[in-house]
Amino acid sequence: MPTTRRAFLQTSVAATAAGALLPTALRAATAEPASRPIPSSGEQLPIVGLGTWITFNVGEDPQRKDECAAVMAAFFESGGRMIDSSPMYGSAQPVIGYGLQKLGRPKALFAADKVWTSGDGPAQIEETRAYWGVPRFDLLQVHNLVDWEAKLPLLFEMKAAGKLRYVGITTSEGRRHDLIERIMRDQPLDFVQFTYNAVDREAEARLLPLAAERGIAVIVNRPFEQGALIRRVANAPLPGFAAEVGATSWAQLLLKFILAHPAVTVAIPATSRVDHVRENLAAGGGLLPDADLRARISAQVRSL
């Protein structure tokens, strides 16, 4: 077992490299997250985004909407770009729209949303766009593969017409990986979104290598398993090896585990706290763990 830990330089090559993780640890610690390219276009995207599942579903509560806007402000200030939501997330979409308007519509925004159960996909997409108040989405994904045979052609059509920049599909918690894999092989996807973290590593077997091979950007959802991983490690001291990659909290260590996989393009932790969003973005800067350290992180979390 090596006695020293190496971390990884976040490069465009790394994002598309199949299988093995790249060695090298050259990045100096920085508050801003590194960027990786979207394989289908080469556009650079910061590797930490912002999810909105549960945390942004605050209804019409003005106080909580302002809190979400503050989280968005801190997100953009810290170098973030991708915000991801869904029509399934209650009031999250109008709350995002409120925040964007309050912040003067930040140019850095990479708007990612989904099309869900509606029989009338275009109407749902238009409603979603109006909530956000954006001229068009950067990325639209078929939520949990619902009606994907009908929805994917619609999204590809929108992309061809210049009404959308990227097309993707999503799943979570290991569901329907066989179908995801088939669609990844058969369809010209720009993005795929699924769950991957220190204890849920199923994606390492097929989906992550396939994404690298096919040049599909990967969005990782539920990096903390909806807070369950944070609660799991809450009473355990941060291991000494966290310092080797500059992680100052369990949340950062868990995120760095995900971000160190070269096929991952962006992870989208959700939070309702400004300090947490800053902490998450900072995890995308500086050193990332090598294969050996990743194995130790995973083993440590699984043992708790």
């Binding site: 549960i54 579903n57 605050v58 509560d61 399934m88 209650g90 290991g174 329907r176 909806q226 309702s272």
Partner: peptide, 22 residues
């Protein structure tokens, strides 16, 4: 195949306790 059996009650909880009681 929707694998509906793989969903739990937690998957349908769209809000936090904080938002609920608020």
């Amino acid at each position: 195949m929707s694998e509906w059996w793989s969903y739990s009650a937690e998957d349908f909880l769209l809000f936090s306790p904080r938002t609920y009681w608020r």
